[in-house]
Nucleic acid binder design. Sequence first.
DNA 1: GACGCGCATGGTAGCGCTACCATCCTTGGC
DNA 2: GCCAAGGATGGTAGCGCTACCATGCGCGTC
Lengths: 359, 359
Amino acid sequence: MARRQEPAQEDTAGGAGRRPSRRGGGRPTLADVARLAGVGAITVSRALREPDRVSVTLRAQIDAAVRALGYVPDRNARALASARADVVGVLVPSLTNNVFADVVRGIYDGLVDTRFQIQIGHTHYSGLEEERLLKVFLGQRPAALIVSGLDQTPQTRTLLEAAGCPVVQIMEAGPDPVDMCVGFSHFDGGRAATEHMLSRGYRRIGFIGARMDPRSQRRLAGYRQAMEAAGLFEPRLVSTTPIPSSVSLGRELLRDALARVPTIDGVFCNNDDLALGVLFECHYASLGVPRQIGICGFNDLDMMQVAYPSITSVRTHRYDIGYRAAAMVKAAMRGEPVEERIVDLGFEVVARDSTAGPM
Amino acid sequence: MARRQEPAQEDTAGGAGRRPSRRGGGRPTLADVARLAGVGAITVSRALREPDRVSVTLRAQIDAAVRALGYVPDRNARALASARADVVGVLVPSLTNNVFADVVRGIYDGLVDTRFQIQIGHTHYSGLEEERLLKVFLGQRPAALIVSGLDQTPQTRTLLEAAGCPVVQIMEAGPDPVDMCVGFSHFDGGRAATEHMLSRGYRRIGFIGARMDPRSQRRLAGYRQAMEAAGLFEPRLVSTTPIPSSVSLGRELLRDALARVPTIDGVFCNNDDLALGVLFECHYASLGVPRQIGICGFNDLDMMQVAYPSITSVRTHRYDIGYRAAAMVKAAMRGEPVEERIVDLGFEVVARDSTAGPM
DNA sequence: GACGCGCATGGTAGCGCTACCATCCTTGGC
DNA sequence: GCCAAGGATGGTAGCGCTACCATGCGCGTC
């Protein structure tokens, strides 16, 4: 298969006197379009980028020439000449995680009507990997950067500050962002969930958490504060692991927790995967939900509502975070002053059957 | 915040006689490194891309200069000069779908140790959108392309054939790929799942499917062939909708199916989300699984194994498909002849409690 | 000892586009 | 009717890198 390096293909229209340049592979260029339309190259460039600044007559000629040649602008040349690639770099810990998949979907939707392409990097929850990827991204002078969380390494923060493009930190709302941020308070979310369970009458509420990234830590801190305020905190109520979260891990962690504290009457799960696993383990072990065990998840994925019994969770506005981040980035790239640099989209505790109260 | 267009920063090392070029923002260039290291620019370029071709002495000097200046190669300039961007374009229908999230993770992992960046486009299951995105991708002369499925529009296929780079079609294994393909037979998967349920004694097996893309259609065709072979096919056993799949939709579709055919004794679900919804609806309606209703999903996500009862599903090798696609792309980009252009990674019916047999 | 081969290194000339500035033409004010 | 102002158009000069083609050197061959 002649897949690599096709021989220079024949010019579609009669591009008279075109010297066969050895590089580039014979694709039509801006100059070809200009020649066919009988205008200067720069006018073609403008017609494509800022149509309003070119007269209607010329624009029509140029459009026709573009179509006739099947011209596609070379984004690499454009990026080099303007010292700016039409690329928005996005750094997320992982895409397997439904939460980030939703955020990224919001970002994509927010940028779908622009010329910007999205490039995603997976940090795998590692600050060093984040730093490495950021350098790679900066190598192409991205139009904007979206990074997850507020806990970058000092070096990464310095790079972001010197990036020379808009930067949005997502998932968390907090003071002193590099440039802008959009998210919510994980601490408050953890506290609110715990307070909800306490208000429903649960007392020995365990915390189950996997892959304790900074945001998970803050949710745990919120749980702890609520429990301490009620005089109910005990270290052995907390089960955490650095292992990535999954439904099956939820089952295991509940078993562990019950082995350690058999009298647990409720579980606040760091996320919904774990909560679903906890529910299945309760089914399996014939523990009644919500009478013997109350369950609360975090994020409120679709399945929480339809699980049987339905599972209480903290609804977070993941898609909106991505969409809003895209909007902030767009505004900043247009040069508009962004007055609201710190956006807190909040959360809601959605009470369902799984926390109806102990017997 | 001076976020946009920082003033040209001072040269870190003493770059004597450096005229302040108005564009580019004063970032160190290859020439700066060459000057500091006392070598030619091209040697620096080689030292970075093909270290073996530069003597150890010079390499050390160059490395030192790179570090001293904090030099980061400009990927846009590199792409323009070499007529190839270090970007692999990936077109998938959606990332919300766990299935594609896994595939994409495999692609990322497969390319993590290379210089290539991944750029993802979401076609939203639309052939026209796929075509549009492909043109955008081609505008930067990607190093390789990975697209989903074998059912591109004729125009898209033409573009792919003329892309001048390796192309891998993923998710399906079939004859006559544009260049290469890796996946499995959805038809066979649907048939095998149905045959499994038939072998366990289920007779009035319904099909539940959402967002009937070409691959879902082929799974349905496989189901249909198995049912017809057993003399059990009936059109009203099939419930499909163009709506995107979700757990809650699974609950609804089961209700619909039962309303139409109350004697249904099994359900083959087009994917695992639906299967989980069906399970929850059975819990809710007090229908015993697997005695009254047998359930089989598709893809075998993590939660199938830990659901209670555990749910039979067709395991597909999503991560491996992505990883293998990345490997094929890497080999082709290195110019190695790829002998196996059509790779079928198969699937397995993982029998669990949900299809233990009717009463 | 002259020649040729291969390897390390360098110079030159773009890649295709856009920033910057110059030029031209229209339009309006006096 | 002349000139200023402003909008449309074009020419020139790169952006920072790599492909291509020298060049120079050491070494083996006859």
